[in-house]
Amino acid sequence: MKEEGKISRWQVFYDDISMLFVLGVVIPTIFYVIWGVMELANAPTAVITGP
């Protein structure tokens, strides 16, 4: 919302494409990729017990 000569902080944030870029890459990388890889890497190996 533009007041007289002032630009709202939200508009400044939305206009900062590089900041949005960083957040848009970092957030899914942390919560989806890194967390997921950590879980999968720490999954216990199945032990097959023979008949």
């Binding site: 957030i27 999968l40 999954a43």
Partner: peptide, 28 residues
């Protein structure tokens, strides 16, 4: 402003939807 907010929500969170392909996977 609301439309731009919606696009920003897409940027921040929409990639996490990939998880739904893994819902029936036992390891996660």
């Amino acid at each position: 402003k609301i439309c731009r907010t919606a696009f920003v929500l897409y940027i921040l969170f929409i990639n996490l939807a990939s998880e739904h392909h893994l819902l029936t996977d036992p390891t996660l």
